[in-house]
Design a protein around this nucleic acid. Structure first.
Lengths: 339, 339
DNA sequence: CTGAAAGCGCTTACAG
DNA sequence: CTGAAAGCGCTTACAG
């Protein structure tokens, strides 16, 4: 049997038909052999696979996707990759996607509604097989577009409010309650809640938990807002430290702001935790390294990403499941030195 | 003229042919109208566009990509999204890609060679139009595969060594030299270079600069390595602080390690900068907020990402340019309190 | 077990 | 300016 010459291939990519030709079978057969999804003679399967490997054949996912109606792409909407909280979710989601041969299309929305909508459309065009939405400010009716097209959407790190989308998150109300309760049990009387953006669901829920704790114990609440960034915590320090009605503890809605706050207070000569106790939320890696080490509420971010992608891929395989599934992961206190 | 009924569309996506039918033209014409890349009567163009908008038509990028041999996807290889340095490059690259209607396929390689190769292959399959490689440990001959297929590759944050690939980075040797020189000029006699992973090009170059400075001034070098993570800096503190041949200054190859080091030293009661001066490299946001505020070398990370994607997209439009183009961005000292 | 054909949804020469 | 046809590279009923 004469070996058939491999076509000159001048910068022309090898196609399935090419390798079929090499082996001397039809493209259909080659396809079946490669995907071994159908009965094929063992010999042909071997030959095709060998030829593919030898010729360094790389299947075209675009063409495959078009034929199969599956792009093998998963969209990921995050408000800010610079934020370790979302970076961790992203990492978790990314890891399981890759492991299942999906590729992740990343969109950093910067919490901007216009960008969210633009990206949502772009991802739709790219025919992503599904989308993970994290920390979105997007109105859910925008997402209905996806639902209508029968494309799975799962939330990560936040629960979907009105319309029922699947998602995995943490009980933020409980997180807020636990943190505040801890502070109060430690003897603090004036604890300030320092939230992130007000339109954020996490801030809303953590504040709810804070209020529950404070009010149930007959203390009076006080609230202030930053933007989830470290710098906003740093700036807040000035307000907090400044005399008259100074709190004796603050519960920040995320660690980044808590850390900024600690830095800012140190800068102003206010001692943490002696003068003011500071507690964060999320338990990002940095918290353990900062001095004083940050007391916080641990939110299993990486795990959230993992589970969210797991859910999404599951819905993809099983086909649109019936009711939306909400997974709530546990969170607990991480007590260190700042409170 | 009777309005033609829109097909019932039960969860079947609208296709170009559908909207062509609505308007009463051929798919070819509809395509031309939408992409307005060819002479088309103004009236038809309007009608087609209106119909597309009314019907909420979403073009299928997969099909388009197959026909045009362009996926509109750009691959991004980063060693770790959890690392702010790469997160910033990623952000820059992402922003310009999105702005030019490309979507970004993210791969976190964890600096693992096997994963890099796996992802490289996966991206090839996905028909990405180009790829940005950042902080890769991948042997460049792996990248030749890309070159052969005529797919643009650009490096970001690191220069390509052997084979000439385009890239944008910073003069790391100079960064190392500037930092060390600053330390020495401040009167320090025993400055330690605390590198990241030894196989990292940035570490190699910054160390080169360090050595140049130290040796040209007749001092003797001493070198130690971490892994670029904050924790490795924290751990290093113990070694550094421990008595006998204690350095009076350390230049860390990145800010994360420098910050960890500062935290660790504080923890051990060693005063920075009085007992030991600490200098970082990169100038990540956190450095400004830490106490003592971190003295560092500013590497314009976001800008690197922006320029790298710019270069890539340019090569894509112009077609493979001739010689590789290397852009070197400036870096300079950011003097704060830690040194 | 294998092949020819049709189709996935778009684009672009090629003719009018 | 417009349409019919062929093609991008794969997959999968449908027949053997």
């Amino acid at each position: 049997m004469q070996p058939v010459a491999v076509p000159a291939n001048k910068n022309k990519r090898l196609t399935l038909r090419d390798i079929a030709k090499i082996v001397g079978v039809s493209a259909s057969t080659a396809s079946r052999a490669l995907n071994n999804n159908s009965a094929i003679s063992e010999e042909i399967r071997r030959k095709v696979n060998k030829a593919a490997k030898d010729a360094n054949y790389i299947p075209n996912t675009l063409a495959r996707g078009l034929a199969l109606q599956r792009s093998q792409l998963i969209g990921l909407l995050v408000p800010s990759i610079a934020n370790p909280f979302f970076a961790e979710i992203l990492r978790g989601a990314h890891d399981v996607a890759q492991q299942k041969s999906y590729v992740v299309a990343l969109c950093d929305t910067q919490r901007d509604k216009e960008r969210e909508e633009l990206f949502s459309e772009r991802l739709l065009q790219s025919q992503v097989d599904g989308i993970i939405v994290t920390g979105s400010v997007m109105l859910e009716d925008r997402l209905i577009e996806w639902r209508k097209r029968n494309i799975p959407v799962v939330f990560a790190g936040r629960r979907s409010a009105g319309m029922r989308f699947s998602g995995v998150s943490v009980d933020d109300v409980s997180a807020g309650y636990q943190a505040t309760r801890y502070l109060i049990d430690k003897g603090h009387k004036k604890v300030l809640f320092f939230g992130g953006k007000q339109d954020s669901a996490a801030t809303r829920d953590r504040q709810r938990g804070y209020l529950d704790a404070v009010e149930s114990l007959g203390l009076s609440p006080s609230v202030s807002y930053g933007d989830y960034g470290m710098e906003s915590g740093f700036r807040e320090a000035a307000k907090v430290a400044q005399g008259k009605d100074r709190p004796d503890a603050v519960f920040a809605a995320n660690d980044l702001m808590a850390i900024g706050l600690i830095m800012g207070l140190a800068n102003l000569g206010v001692k943490v935790p002696e003068d003011i106790a500071v507690m964060g939320c999320d338990d990002i890696a940095m918290g353990a390294l900062i001095r004083p080490a940050l007391t916080s509420v641990r939110i299993p971010m990486y795990e959230i990403g993992v589970r969210a992608m797991g859910l999404l891929l599951h819905e993809l395989e099983v086909g649109q499941t019936g009711p939306a599934e909400s997974i709530l992961l546990d969170c607990g206190l991480v007590i260190r030195d700042s409170a």
